[in-house]
Design a protein around this nucleic acid. Structure first.
Length: 741
DNA sequence: GCGTGACATTTTTTT
DNA sequence: AATGTCACGC
């Protein structure tokens, strides 16, 4: 039967699947059957009796990938997969912490803060500490805290010498204390806590190291420093680590992913046990040639070249548009043509670098009544009405949660205003108590709120999860509030959907999906309480952006969101300098972490440009048969028209695989009402304005800066100026009050 | 206490 | 263009 399992694998894939009990690194290129290898390996290990299902730990980055893996494994294996540890880093850490909450120093009902919750917790803290939020921006504080946690550093471990980072570190420490007091944990905290738990608790560590004989990791290139350490801690002397990744597809360095982990893993674990999967089963030759040529221009690579047994296929179509609108209508025309030829809309994708770009495309698609679906955006559990309902629930299970308290104490409005809350907070701080405790001992409207919550607690105690949530939505006044609101219908529906989601969740939990079948864990909590589990689920799995499922619709998403997906036809739009590669990433990637006080977690500071190139590589390799690349000379962005040059990535592709769709109307401008449009630019020559690139200038409002780019001529002339204070801006010379410095 | 208008801000995204 | 944040006035 295991022979059957291996039947359709190529030699490299088979070698990877059947590796002996040793650690290995699998360099799996785009479209090389990575997920297949990973799941088959898991099944093979179990089927050949090398390990029991409980001895396997499989880690992914997204819930989607985890689910996919589970589905495939249970399809191949007749056994019960319920006790298996397959999940995201955060999901598994949560599981561990719930099981060993005492040892981890957490309350049984600890709540998880998502990024929004975390930010508001930070703002609240800074307000209480009277910190100047101009000087210390809450967002930067959040980055600082998370960056350090992801590097495995607690506040006391951070080396801070200058005043700024010392203050940041103080905030970090105070923030952690606040979280501890309130019984909440943010995302990186889950990982760090779980790490510390095993690090300090030897018997527990022994237990898990002994249990997990095989650890499999998906998308290894996306691991950050802490996640890698976490894996090393779970791995005992007899554990084999099977890491699958593609350094060329690392596109999350900006949030701490450390590609150097791959090289390090090879040195520390794989010891030359490296298998490359280079045969691509997805794309035609020309597309792969383009991808290979592009990525070969990155200096920091482990090295890998994709090939395909398919023919060259079609050339890559390149379109130069005069404006973003023209680009959009070009895309719409092509999409309709392909659709007429029989290609499903859902087999085509429109990709762009940043979400803001989708608007023009959507507009054009809408006018042409082409059905489409936009991925990304607000997810279900992140909607405000849902968050409100969840906050009530959090308060029921964990009254110390001040964040939840503040979110709903006056929503719907109960006449409890800022001043009342200030007094309440003062009282709570003096007594060293939570807001909830202070509210219970007080009087007036606040006491009324406390009574409301108490009553809810009583009533819901005997109800099922879904019934309880339904009751809370009614009793809190949320339902009435949205019923009274003219625009509340959608929100009301979402609240209804929340009740349904809870019912569905309870059903699945009943089926055992979320139970831990391993009863041998020392000191483990037997089962988790339904409400807590549901709340954790809501935080960890914010929910797919639903709607329009089942309908054939064109797929719109950012390149980031497209990772891991494939389509027959792909349009990569907005290939312009400054947009893709994005200026923020390409030119000053160091800025974000420069002040974090822990540059070490970005020790492999590579140029942001290489990450942008990898992003382009990911985009190209999404396409199976047909690929379109387009750029626009002018584009509305942030309410301003910007003029840009074609992306350098277009120049980095081999000409022989490209087909220029504008060929017929050389030069690239469309024939039409435009009288000899200005050449895009030539910074050093041919401008008549008296300004040139590199020159220092003074602006009445923005201060002094340096001209870094120049476009157009005459009354259309525009310059990009990098100001010392306010960053870079595009200015029309005809209007801007500029003078030479 | 609450609603309204001025003001700034704007990468990519998962957990 | 669009959205969130903040200060101000009722």
């Amino acid at each position: 039967m295991s022979a059957h399992l291996l039947e359709n694998l190529n030699p490299e894939q088979r070698a990877a699947v059947t590796l002996p009990h040793e650690s290995a690194l699998i360099l799996a290129g785009a479209g090389s059957g990575k997920t297949r290898v990973l799941t088959t390996r898991m099944v093979w290990l179990i089927q050949t009796g090398q390990v029991s299902p409980l001895g396997v730990l499989a880690v992914t980055f997204t819930n989607k990938a985890a689910k996919e893996m589970m589905t495939r494994v249970s399809a191949m294996l007749p056994i019960n997969t319920r006790g298996m540890w397959v999940g995201t880093f955060h999901g598994l850490a949560n599981r561990l912490l719930r099981t060993h909450y005492r040892e981890a120093g957490l309350p049984q009902s600890f709540q998880i803060l998502d990024s929004q919750d975390q930010l508001s917790a930070i703002k609240r803290l800074m307000k209480a500490m009277n910190v100047d939020t101009e000087k210390y921006e809450p967002k930067k504080v959040q980055r600082f805290i998370n960056g350090n946690k992801e590097a495995g550093l607690r506040a006391r471990d951070v080396e801070a010498f200058d005043e700024y980072s010392m203050r940041m570190t103080e905030l970090y420490e105070a923030y952690d204390a606040q979280c501890q007091r309130e019984g909440v944990a943010d995302f990186p905290e889950l990982l760090l806590r779980a790490y510390e738990l095993l690090y300090r608790n030897e018997p527990l560590r022994q237990h898990y190291q002994d249990r997990f004989r095989h650890i499999l990791i998906d998308e290894f290139q996306d691991t950050n420093t802490l996640q890698y350490r976490w894996l090393k801690l779970f791995a005992g002397p007899r554990t084999a680590l099977f890491a699958v990744g593609d350094d060329d597809q690392s596109i999350y360095a900006f949030r701490g992913a450390n590609t150097a982990n791959m090289a390090e893993f090879e040195r520390e674990f794989a010891h030359g046990n490296v298998i490359k999967l280079e045969q691509n089963y997805r794309s035609h030759g020309n597309i792969l040639t383009a991808a290979n040529t592009l990525i070969s221009q990155n200096a920091h690579r482990l090295g890998k070249n994709l090939w395909t047994a398919e023919g060259d296929g079609e050339p890559i179509r390149v379109f130069h548009a005069y404006s973003d609108q023209e680009e959009a209508s070009f895309v719409v025309d092509e999409v309709r043509a392909l659709n007429r030829e029989g290609m499903n809309l859902s087999d085509m994708a429109l990709l762009y670098r940043s979400n803001a770009q989708s608007r023009v495309l959507e507009h054009a698609l809408f006018s042409a009544s082409v059905p489409y679906r936009v991925y990304g955006g607000l997810r279900f559990f992140e909607r405000q009405e849902v968050k409100h309902a969840l906050a009530y629930l959090r308060l029921l299970t964990n009254p110390e949660d001040d964040g939840a308290f503040l979110r709903v104490v006056n929503f719907p409005a109960r006449g409890i205003g800022a001043r009342t809350l200030e007094q309440l907070a003062d009282g709570a701080a003096r007594a060293g108590a939570s807001l909830w405790q202070a509210a219970c001992t007080g009087g007036g409207k606040v006491a009324g709120f406390a009574k409301l919550i108490e009553d809810m607690k009583q009533v819901t105690a005997d109800l099922s999860l879904a019934e309880a949530i339904d009751h809370v939505i009614e009793a809190s006044g949320l339902a009435d509030y949205y019923r009274a609101d003219k625009e509340g219908a959608d929100r009301l529906e979402n609240l209804n959907e929340l009740v349904n989601a809870a019912a569905l969740f309870a059903e699945e939990s009943e089926a055992g999906i979320y139970d831990d079948a391993d009863a041998s864990t020392p000191g483990g909590a037997e089962s988790f309480r339904a409400l807590d589990t549901f709340l954790a689920h809501a935080a960890l799995e914010a929910g797919e952006h639903q709607a329009g499922a089942g309908h054939d619709a064109l797929q719109l998403m950012t390149v980031h969101a497209a990772k891991g997906l494939e389509f027959h036809a792909v349009f990569i739009t907005g290939l312009e300098e400054g947009l893709f590669p994005h200026e923020q990433s390409a030119y000053d990637s160091t800025r974000a972490s420069a002040r974090s006080g822990s540059e070490s977690f970005r020790a492999n500071e590579e140029s942001g440009l290489e990450e942008e190139r990898r992003l382009m590589y990911v985009a190209i390799t999404r396409a199976r048969r047909r690929l379109y690349l387009s750029h626009a000379q002018s584009r509305m962005l942030h309410g301003q028209t910007r003029y840009s040059l074609p992306s350098r990535f277009l120049d980095e592709l081999p000409e022989q695989v490209l087909l220029n769709l504008n060929r017929r109307s050389e030069p690239v401008y469309p024939s039409g009402g435009y009288s000899a449009p200005a050449a895009p630019r030539s910074p050093q020559t041919g401008n008549d304005t008296g300004y040139k690139v590199g020159q220092s200038v003074v602006h009445a409002k923005f201060g002094t800066g340096i001209i870094i780019d120049f476009e157009g001529r005459g009354s259309d002339a525009r310059v990009q100026v990098k100001f010392r204070e306010v960053g870079s801006k595009w200015l029309a010379l005809a209007y801007a009050k500029l003078s030479p410095a």
